[in-house]
Nucleic acid binder design. Structure first.
Lengths: 342, 342
DNA sequence: TTGTAAGCGTTATCAC
DNA sequence: GTGATAACGCTTACAA
C-alpha cells in the first residue's frame, strides 16, 4: 500500500528500522533506547543516539499512538479563542503539557448549544486523545456518556459543581457574583444594576449570585437586571451603560459580568461627564490586564485563569497515569480587587 | 501486543472491521462508504451508515494517518498565545480548517532564539503534519532544510519577503512603519520618538521603516529611538512615555510599535495632564479593539490579522493538495486609521 | 540485555 | 461495485 504522498521526488522518511539496520540491532532495541534508555546497554545506546542524529531520524507519533494506544495528546474544548480569558487558561495548560511532552488539540465550541459540543467531542475522539479538558460543568448527558464509552479521563474547568463524580478545577461563579453584590451593598449602593452579555451558564451564575445577595438585602430591582445574548465587548458595554443611565436615573452602581463590558462603560462615562464612582460605581469580572489602567481603574473580581489551566492539566495527567484515581475537585476561588471605580 | 490501556473494565473500541462484520461487507467497503460515498452502492451505503451510528463507530485518525500518510493536521507556530494579535491569526486559520475537517496543532516559540524554533519544529514533525504555518520570514536555514527534508509545505505569515521561493501571506512591516512616520511628519511633528518593545524581527522592521522616513526628512533623532527587550504591555507603555517626556522635553510625538504600549501611554497622559494630541501625538500599531475607545481614541496602523490567517490557511491547503504548485506571496497591506490621538 | 512475532486500525493496490 | 492482501511505523508480549 505504501501510503506515501506519491510525488515525483519523494524521499522516504527515515524510520526506526533504518536506524536499527544502521546500528546493527533490531528495531525494538532502538525503540527501547529512545523510551527507556536505561534498559539498553550503554555502548549500544550511544551508537543508536549517534545514528538517530546522523540519519535525521524523527520518530512517528502516529505509529507510536497506534501501537501503544497512547497518543500523547489531549483535547482542550473552550468556548472561544478571541476571549483572553480562555487563552490564559490554555497558556496555563501548555506550561504543564510542554514539560511532559504532550501536545494539545484545541476545539472551539463557540458558545453554541450542547449538540455542537457533542459534535466537536466526536471529532476530537477521532484523534484518540489521552484526556480531555472541558470548559464549565454543564455538558450534556451524551458528552458524559461518550467520555465514558471511550474511557477518556476528563477534567472540567472554570466553574464548580456539587457532583463528586466529576473532576473540576475552578471557582464558584455564583459565589464570585455574590462577592460583587456584597461589595456594592457595603459601599452604600442601593440601586444596583446587573449587566451580562454572552449568557453562557457561567456568566448567568455570576449574575444570579449577585442577584441573590441583592434580593436577600431587599435591594433587587428586576428592571436593573439586564442580560443580553450578544457577545461581550467594549462597544456593547458603552451602549448598555448609556441606555441604563438614560432609562434608570436612580441607578447608582453597575456590576458587569465581564471586564470588557465594564471598560466600555468606563470609557463612555469618562467621555460623557458621568463621574465614576461618585455618580455611578462600576464593578467588572475577571480582572483583565487593562483594568488597572482604565479611567478610573476598575474594581473587579480576579479569577486565577492560568492557575486553573495548570492545575486542571496536572489533575488530568494524574488521571491519565492512573485511571483508577477517584475524581478530585479543586476550588481556586475568586477575589475582589478593589480599585477606584467603586 | 494489543496496545490497550489494560484496565479491568476495558471495552475495545469499535472498529471498521466491527462495522463491516455487522453489515456483512469487507472493511474496505466501509472505508470507501465513509470517504467516497458515491463509490458504494446505495443500499450497502445506507446499511453502513446505519451500523456506524448504531455501534457508535468513531473512525481512528491515527490509523488513517499511518495508512494514508495524511494526518489531516497542520502545525501552526506562533510566538505567543497571550498576544491577541496571534490569537486572531489563529482564529482566521481555524475558520478555514474547520470547513476542511483539518485540525491544528499550535506551537509557541516564545520569542526565543532560532534554535528554540528548530526544536519546536522537530517536535511537531513527529506528528507528521500535512503542512506548517510559520510566523515571520526569519527562520533559520535548519528550519528551511527540515521542511524540505520532510517535504512539508509551509506558508509564512505576518511579514513580507523578496524571496520568490517561499510562500507568505502578510504585509511589509517596514512599509507599515513608514506610514506611521509619514503621518506624523505630515501633521507637523518634528521631534518624533520611536518606541518598541519585544524586538522580534517584525517589530524591529516596523521601527526601521519609520526611522528611515524620519531620516530622509532630516528629522531623525537617535536619542528618541527607544527599543527595549521587555515584552510589550500597558504598564511598560506608561513607564516609557513618562521617562520619555521627562528626558526629552522637545518630543512632540511618539510612534509605538504595538497598541498596548500606546494604550499605557494614553492612560498615563490622561492621568497626568499631558494633552494628547496637542502636547504629544501618539500612534500605535495593530489596531486592537480597545483602540477606538481610549482617551483619546488612538491613531494606529490596522493589520488584517484574521484575513492573514485565512489566506495563509487557504494557500497552505492548496499547496497540500498540489505540492507542485509554485510558491505564492500575498501582500494584504496595512493602513493608517486616523483617530484623535494625532 | 536483546530479539521475534504479532498486531494497532486504517488505506493503497490490484484483482474480480 | 466489492474484496483480499499487504503495508504504514511502531510497541506489546513473550522468548532467548
Amino acid at each position: 500500500m505504501q501510503g506515501q504522498k506519491s510525488r515525483a521526488s519523494f524521499r522516504r522518511r527515515t524510520t526506526m528500522a533504518d536506524v536499527a539496520r544502521d546500528v546493527g540491532v533490531s528495531a525494538i532495541t532502538v525503540s527501547r533506547a529512545l523510551r527507556n534508555p536505561e534498559t539498553v546497554s550503554e555502548p549500544v545506546r550511544e551508537r543508536i543516539t549517534e545514528a538517530c542524529r546522523r540519519l535525521g531520524y524523527v520518530p512517528s507519533r502516529v505509529a507510536s499512538a497506534l501501537a501503544s494506544a497512547r497518543s500523547k495528546t489531549i483535547s482542550v474544548l473552550i468556548p472561544s479563542l478571541t476571549n483572553i480569558v480562555f487563552v490564559e487558561v490554555v497558556a496555563g495548560i501548555k506550561q504543564i503539557l510542554d514539560a511532559l511532552d504532550y501536545q494539545m488539540l484545541i476545539g472551539i465550541t463557540g458558545y453554541e448549544d450542547q449538540m455542537a459540543e457533542e459534535r466537536l467531542l466526536m471529532q476530537h475522539l477521532e484523534y484518540a486523545p489521552d484526556g480531555i479538558l472541558l470548559t464549565g460543568i454543564d455538558q450534556s448527558e451524551t458528552v458524559i456518556r461518550l467520555l465514558g464509552d471511550f474511557s477518556v479521563p476528563a477534567v472540567h474547568m472554570m466553574d464548580s459543581s456539587e457532583r463528586a463524580d466529576c473532576s473540576w478545577v475552578g471557582f464558584s461563579n455564583t459565589d464570585a457574583g455574590a462577592i460583587a453584590g456584597r461589595h456594592l451593598l457595603e459601599t452604600g449602593r442601593r440601586h444596583i444594576a446587573i449587566v451580562a452579555a454572552q449568557l453562557d451558564p457561567r456568566s448567568t451564575r455570576r449574575c444570579d449570585g449577585c442577584r441573590d445577595v441583592l434580593q436577600a438585602a431587599g435591594h433587587y430591582d428586576p428592571a436593573l437586571d439586564i442580560r443580553v445574548p450578544h457577545s461581550s465587548s467594549i462597544p456593547l458595554g458603552a451602549e448598555l451603560v448609556q441606555k441604563l443611565l438614560r432609562e434608570h436615573e436612580a441607578c447608582d452602581a453597575v456590576y458587569f459580568c465581564n471586564d470588557d463590558l465594564a471598560h466600555g462603560a468606563l470609557f463612555w462615562c469618562s467621555q460623557n461627564g458621568v463621574a465614576v464612582p461618585e455618580r455611578l460605581a462600576v464593578v467588572g469580572f475577571h480582572d483583565f490586564s487593562a483594568s488597572a489602567w482604565t479611567p478610573p481603574p476598575l474594581t473587579t473580581i480576579e479569577t486565577p485563569r492560568q492557575e486553573i489551566g495548570r492545575e486542571a492539566a496536572r489533575l488530568l495527567m494524574a488521571r491519565i497515569e492512573d485511571p483508577g484515581q477517584p475524581a478530585r475537585q479543586i476550588d481556586l476561588g475568586a477575589r475582589l480587587i478593589r480599585r477606584a471605580s467603586s
